[in-house]
C-alpha cells in the first residue's frame, strides 16, 4: 500500500530524514516509535504534503501513485489522512460546515456525486455518537475552544467520515486522559479493515495497549533502525531509546 524508498528530506538546510525506507501493507497497523527529534512528525507531514520541506531524494508511493508529485488536497482525495498532533482552529466555521465542505471536496475530486444533506447528517450523527461527541460540539466553530480531548475526537470523527485508506495518527495520545484515550482508540479500532492501513506515531507504549499494532518500527536520526512485532514496543518501554541513540552516533 505505502512504500517509502530512500527518503531524504531537509528543512532550512537541516537534514531531518536520512534515506528512510518503510513499507506498510494493506490492512496493517504499523507503529513508529522513537525519541524526540528523530523525525517522526516530519515523516507524517511529508507524506501528507506539507510545504516547507525539501525532498532531496527518494519516493513515496501510495498504491503505486507517486505522492510527491501531488498537492496536499490531491493526496487527501487519494486517501491520505493525517490526524494532527495539534489540530488547527478555524474561527467562524461550524464543525458541521467544515465536515461537509471537506467530504464533498474529496468526493468531487474523485468524480463522485455530492452527498445530500440528510444523508450527510445521518453519517455524521452515527460517527459522532460512537465517539461520544455531543451535537452542540458540531455546531461550534471547528476546534475553537475545544479541550485537548475534544480536538482529538474531532480528528477521529473526520477520519471516520472521510474513510481514507491510509491513516496517519501523529501522537494522537498526547493530552488525552484515560477515558478519552479509550474512546479515541475504540474509534480507531472500529475503522480497522483489510483495505485500510494505519501508521501510528507515538512516544509511549500506552497507546499501543489500546490500538494493538501488527508491526513496530523504531526511528532514529531520520531512519528506521529496527522493525519488529508488537513486543518490540514493550521492550522499548523497558529499556528506553538509549540503544538507538548510539546508532545515531555511529
Amino acid at each position: 500500500m505505502l512504500e517509502i524508498k530512500n527518503l531524504v528530506v531537509q528543512i532550512e538546510d537541516k537534514r531531518i530524514l536520512n534515506g528512510l525506507n518503510l513499507t506498510v501493507n494493506k490492512g496493517e497497523m504499523a507503529a513508529i516509535m522513537g525519541p524526540n527529534g528523530s523525525g517522526k512528525s516530519t515523516l507524517s507531514y511529508v507524506i501528507a504534503g506539507k510545504e516547507d520541506y525539501e525532498v532531496l531524494d527518494g519516493e513515496i508511493l501510495l498504491d503505486g501513485q507517486n505522492l510527491l508529485e501531488m498537492e496536499a488536497d490531491q493526496r487527501a482525495a487519494a486517501g491520505v489522512f493525517l490526524a494532527f498532533q495539534y489540530p488547527l482552529e478555524i474561527p467562524g466555521v461550524a464543525s458541521m460546515t467544515f465536515l461537509k465542505a471537506t467530504l464533498n471536496a474529496q468526493r468531487k475530486a474523485r468524480g463522485e456525486a455530492e452527498l445530500t444533506t440528510p444523508d450527510f447528517i445521518k453519517r455524521v450523527n452515527a460517527a459522532a455518537q460512537q465517539l461520544e461527541i455531543p451535537k452542540d460540539m458540531l455546531k461550534r466553530a471547528l476546534n475553537v475552544g475545544f479541550s485537548g480531548g475534544e480536538k482529538k475526537r474531532m480528528e477521529i470523527l473526520q477520519m471516520a467520515l472521510l474513510q481514507p485508506n491510509f491513516c496517519i495518527l501523529d501522537e494522537t495520545d498526547s493530552g488525552l486522559d484515560i477515558d478519552a484515550l479509550r474512546i479515541v482508540s475504540e474509534g480507531v479500532n472500529a475503522l480497522r479493515s483489510p483495505d485500510r492501513a494505519f501508521l501510528v506515531i507515538t512516544h509511549y507504549q500506552r497507546l499501543l495497549n489500546h490500538i494493538v499494532p501488527d508491526t513496530v518500527h523504531v526511528m532514529s536520526a531520520g531512519r528506521i533502525v529496527k522493525t519488529g512485532g508488537k513486543e518490540l514496543a514493550l521492550e522499548l518501554e523497558a529499556t528506553g531509546y538509549a540503544d538507538y541513540r548510539e546508532t545515531e552516533a555511529a
Binding site: A48, G49, K50, E51, D52, E71, A72, D73, R75, A76, A77, V80, F81, L82, F84, P87, L88, E89, I90, P91, G92, V93, T97, F98, A101, T102, L103, A105, Q106, A109, A141, Q158, L162
Partner: peptide, 30 residues
Amino acid sequence: ISEDQMFYCQQRGLSEEEATALIVNGFVKD
C-alpha cells in the same frame, strides 16, 4: 490565515481557493 491552517484544510481535501474561501467566510459570518 496561517500556513498551518491552510495545510490543515488542504489535508482534508480542500483546494487552496476553497480553503481560503472557507476561512474568510468564517471570518465575516457575523
